[in-house]
Nucleic acid binder design. Structure first.
Lengths: 343, 343
DNA sequence: TCTCTGTACGCAATCGATTTCAAAGATTAC
DNA sequence: GTAATCTTTGAAATCGATTGCGTACAGAGA
């Protein structure tokens, strides 16, 4: 019989009391006799009563649910972020509604609409690679609805962002390669639509220039897809086209770095002796490779956790959107491993 | 002003109509004049009206939301399953509420309670390693509430399960190792609490026996944690303790296989010449390793997608729980790669 | 003029829980 | 003995949308 859950009215009928009394008794409100409270709780337990959160949401205009819009779930970094989100949300009594955009703008838009219809209290967003206009976010923000962006910060004034120190991470990685004696360092960059790609490239550029190395535009290769095959192919082509052979690669992601690694191995170059490689993100597999891949570690769990804390603090008005710090930047850490260590 | 969304009443007031008329006009019900419909829709648009799904849920006792309880999000296989779930749910108009148990029973229990409170229409579950009693599920199932289990099938009569062919996958992997001439094959098994561990071990056993090789209990090593370090350590110990040195490892997961790989390399054994290795799950990184790791590929996306389809079909009564097929087993595929290919 | 048939819309109940206001009954104070 | 106070409980409105039923009005037919 799935005739459904017992409600407060069922308990009321059973005990010949009113719904109001049941509600108060269950919540230990004053003004209800101990005897009544006891009986109500007993019957509630026997009837396997479970409060209807939907009814509560309707009444309070609060659902204790936050939405998460994320480009991909099958992605080491993003799944780590989700884990952090879920962890904090759970501990603070919030549900998490998940939607992946698959890097598609239209899906991103429809997701946020559905979520708003479902009266979520706030939303965490990492926007898709396709997203160039942010109207669908500003519209909502202007209504005073809380949004916290993570990893990918949109060009919206006053948006609240939680990011990693992409610039600094890239800078550190490049400095590391320079310090290991690599001279001709190539950067495999990401899609230009993402601020993180631009920041990482800038970190690379500045590190070179600070060390008196002029940046050769031919040494910056855009890898829009970020797949292994793409990285491998582009690096192979590079070996054939560049007059001076590169002796190091700093990739804006780990998969691309593996592609570069394979391309190097294909033509018999020794890593790290002849070529140094550093990735970005420090995916799980970096330490499993041979040689182990150096990479810039991003605090994914922390990012999810902090973004969620901020969002919930805003929802619960523990933070004032007008005056709060709008950008939180989490530090990266360079994991030096064998793929780039010559000394 | 976050004074909130426009409601049907706001539109009604604006147009001097009743709420019922607005509702019907928006849904193109008959009995409303075309002119009224036009005006209502126009005002709705201007006021940026968004229907309140919570109110609907309350009225219909249907939330168009399904819950997902999963041990871990940061896990290649599970994240792939989530992706499949999310994909189908989205296309069929359902929201996904996500909760990770972190392999903890109490979190699993509280998650399902919260979700039920939130009036989800059904739930997809992969239970935690700690879960040994399934009362918290049967209680709910007995009320007629739809649950579909995936990957890890509980010992509940009549439960609906979507699994991969663990037995067959393990059988195939072992046969493959035998066919490559490996003689002394060790199995790194998983926690005995999980049916998948038992099935995989049985596949290994049967493959050996079908080929006239008797199963040596000392060749079955339980790896309850499933970490790289554990695998590496246990395999190293094995090399010191077993009288006859193993020449192949079939691990019930990929991480353990990498551990075994490292342990072999530590003592200078050549892969696949002297030792063959096969993992299970075919995580993304398998193809990135050197040598590439052979592994049994599990259709994670498919599993999530199929489980979700079944769940939604049950919710929408397109499937009859009494008469339907209760176990769906998805085929695995052995990905033969360099770590186990001698010929 | 009266009845009949549509058309176009409104009233009110409903979903489940909360909460304001009020009231019945018991007890105390003077 | 009566008013005042306290204890314990109930009625009803509310959140937003849906829906069965009722009704006002216009035009048609007799």
């Amino acid at each position: 019989m799935k005739l459904g859950q017992a409600t407060i009215k069922d308990i009321a009928r059973e005990l010949n009391l009113s719904a109001s009394t049941i509600s108060r008794a269950l919540k230990d409100y004053p003004g209800i006799s101990d005897e009544t409270k006891r009986r109500v709780k007993e019957v509630a337990k026997n009837m396997n009563y479970r409060p209807n959160a939907i009814a509560l949401s309707l009444r309070k205009s609060r659902s204790f649910t936050i939405g998460v819009i994320i480009p991909e779930v099958v992605h080491f970094f993003f799944s780590t972020v989700i884990s952090g989100i879920e962890d904090i949300a759970q501990s603070r009594g919030y549900n998490v509604i998940l939607s992946q955009s698959n890097e598609k703008l239209d899906r991103e838009i429809s997701s946020i609409e559905t979520m708003l219809s479902n009266q979520i209290d706030g939303v965490l967003v990492s926007y898709s690679k396709e997203t160039e206009s942010f109207d669908h976010f500003t519209r909502v923000l202007d209504q005073g609805f809380p949004i916290v962006f993570f990893d990918r910060a949109p060009a919206i004034p006053n948006a609240i962002n939680v990011m990693v120190a992409d610039y600094q991470g890239a800078y550190d990685a490049t400095i590391h390669l320079i310090s290991q004696g690599y001279k001709n360092i190539v950067h495999l960059s990401g899609p230009k639509a993402l601020k993180i790609s631009i920041d990482r490239e800038q970190g690379y550029r500045d590190a070179l220039e600070k060390n008196g190395i002029s940046v050769n535009p031919a040494n910056i290769i855009e890898c829009p897809l970020g797949t292994l095959e793409e990285g491998q192919r582009l690096v192979s082509e590079l070996f054939n086209s560049l007059p001076e052979r590169p002796d190091a690669f700093f990739s804006c992601n780990d998969i691309g770095a593996v592609g570069a690694m394979k391309a190097c191995r294909d033509i018999g170059l020794k890593i790290p002796l002849e070529v140094g490689i550093v990735g970005f993100s420090d995916w799980q597999f970096c330490a499993m490779l041979d040689p182990q891949l150096s990479s810039v570690s991003q605090p994914g769990f922390m990012m999810g956790a902090r973004a969620t804390e901020i969002l919930i603090d805003i929802i619960e008005k523990k933070l004032d959107v007008e005056t709060m710090e709008r950008n939180l930047i989490l530090e990266t850490k360079l994991m030096e491993r064998d793929s780039s260590r010559r000394f």
